[in-house]
Design a protein around this nucleic acid. Structure first.
Lengths: 72, 72, 72, 72
DNA sequence: GTGGTCTAGACCACT
DNA sequence: GTGGTCTAGACCACT
């Protein structure tokens, strides 16, 4: 997914700080001009890679960069 | 709802006496670490099942256990 | 609730046809200048009165006018 | 009321800007160590004097200083 | 000081 | 792109 790769790159380059909130689903779907489901799939991809964590009612947050959490 | 089921179980097992007051919405939201509106949804569920009754300005009270109200 | 009463009136006067879709929650919240949760409370009222039915992912539809459903 | 007079003084001296939000009822009751009802009566006093406007779910806002709005 | 209503806005589940 | 749930926190009404 292009969107997931783009955001992953931002996180890995440190352009999105650990702990910071991603734009909301609605904002991302407007920014990329895609449907909500497409945004959600991208975020799910990032979640599975351990880069972000979605918190119901609050937002989606950067958890780390370059998979620091697992196996270290 | 997990919270509603938990409290319903306490009432049905007699751990919460008929006529006793539940913790306030604020206390429950702190105990369960959820927003107050989520607590209110759980209490609404219990109210509809006839287990508790909320009284404005006073609190929420256990009305019965195991559906004693109807047909007695 | 004023909003619920207003929409109920439209349905009862036949201004909203049976089977037609209500404006979405987002549209209604813009139209009435209230939060979406307030719109949802109004729709919940209408649902309990049997006037509309909300279908997840599709919309909220007028089911009848003047309580035609029961006793027919 | 001492609290109302204190806040009115702040507004009239410009220490609370027009459009700014007052501390919430809970914050004010903690600050002054009084019950919520006492705070509400003070705010009601300020509302009747036209200094603030309470907006449900949002907060209480300074509308003006020295009664500029009416009859000017 | 409790329950009741509302705001603004997030993610979730579904079609 | 809709309805469903949740967060955080405000004022309102009541006892």
């Amino acid at each position: 997914m292009i969107i997931a790769g783009h955001i992953a790159g931002q996180i890995e380059r440190g352009e999105r700080a650990v702990g910071s909130r991603l734009p909301s689903e609605l904002e991302l779907s407007n920014m990329w001009q895609v449907a909500r489901m497409t945004v959600r799939r991208a975020i799910r991809e990032l979640t599975e890679r351990g880069l972000v964590r979605a918190v119901h009612g609050k937002g989606t947050f950067v958890t780390e960069s370059r998979g620091e959490a697992s196996g270290r």
